[in-house]
Design a protein around this nucleic acid. Structure first.
Lengths: 210, 210
DNA sequence: GGTTTAATTATACGGTTGTATAATTGTGAT
DNA sequence: ATCACAATTATACAACCGTATAATTAAACC
């Protein structure tokens, strides 16, 4: 009856790699790590399983690349407001906090992904390396923002002080992000960012209040 | 040459169940979820794989029981100082914070276990139920401790205020616990509890300082 | 001390997994 | 138009997984 439809189409290496990474993240984030087999990933990306090995030497290699891409995207979303030079340091800090505790950063899918990779850092050196790098990048950017904010308030924090504050602020942000993403409805999402602003404000001894 | 050694010995159901649960936690915490097969778990517990099905209807059942047991133990360790009636509320709160951020609660093994189970809450209803129950139990106990501490300082917090403070305190404790357990040496473990005490003190507007 | 019974082991089985290799097929160059 | 090559598919395979069932064996009982 119909003409033999084209059985497949070629794509650029970059596109294919990205498609496979996206498919991996979608499956892990939606159905968990166990569901992320080479076959299900290939199906999600509309290719056959052999193609995975053509672009990634091993499945673990794909997983590592997916983690890398995911963290890059999360960091991008979380730090996007940090470089808005039209705003004051304080407003940028407030915006970063808010971005971390509202969708799309705040989501069950992201917690599943994050926990899945975190569970592997003790046994997978490459996962550990990516974790440490992205963690320090975010924390250092946060520290700079905190320092700028305090200086704008005529404060003179030492480097040790700002580092400790950055560690603590990062902790409360991460903790609230987890709580907010995992406890279904027991915690109103609307108050999450306000909670962070109020308490980080007290930690920094400035007024970040909503 | 030697007498035929006894090939196995019987144990009480409670002991066997506990042995299998301990073996499961040891393998997941040490080598990750993928390494936790029924065969490796049985070997770790010095039994054969068939015995698992004799005590647990399915492997998922064993995993769930292991999560339950692990969280019970973590909660026990973390809240042990909360009921020491010889101390003031403030000292008990300080002790709980300290217990959460020092070994044995603070450990890479525990983060691996915790992340492994957290990664499953979106897809495993029983894991989700255990998570919510243990989370609320800890947070409620923390809220009571915070209320008692504030009242002892002649403060009159509302229920909403103490609940919000409990959420925020729980968040910073969890966040620091994770940071401290995952970032190898980049963060001195000795300062971790002090960091929590100082910043939670500011959040509660009281002096918890070391 | 033999009998019974439940705990434990031993073995088997179908399905799935990641990887390897061979067979196709789309596509740009000539 | 067809040639050449790389992208993609198709197929195969050995290892491992969780589960089921049958065969042993330790230990309690009378």
């Amino acid at each position: 009856m119909s003409k033999p439809q084209r059985s497949f189409a070629r794509e650029s290496p970059e596109q294919r790699r990205q498609d496979l990474i996206d498919a991996t993240l979608k499956i892990i984030g939606g159905n968990g790590f166990r569901a992320a087999t080479v076959r299900s990933i290939a199906a999600q990306a509309n290719v056959t399983l052999g193609l995975i090995r053509h672009y990634f030497t091993t499945k673990e290699d794909l997983i590592t690349a997916a983690y890398e891409a995911h963290m890059a995207e999360m960091t991008r979303l979380a730090l996007a407001p940090a470089d808005d030079t039209t705003k004051s340091p304080k407003d940028r800090l407030r915006a970063v906090i808010h971005a971390n505790l509202t969708p799309p950063v705040l989501s069950e899918r992201n917690v599943t992904l994050w926990a899945t990779f975190l569970a592997q850092i003790a046994n997978e050196p490459e996962i550990q390396a990516t974790h440490t790098r992205t963690y320090l990048h975010f924390r250092n950017r946060l520290e700079t923002l905190i320092r700028e904010t305090l200086i704008a308030e005529n404060r003179t924090p030492t480097q040790t002080e700002t580092q400790h504050l950055a560690v603590a602020c990062n902790a409360i942000i991460d903790g609230l992000w987890m709580e907010g993403s995992t406890s279904k409805g027991a915690l109103q999402k609307s108050t999450l960012a306000d909670l962070a602003l109020k308490n980080i404000g007290r930690m920094l001894e400035i007024d970040l209040g909503p």
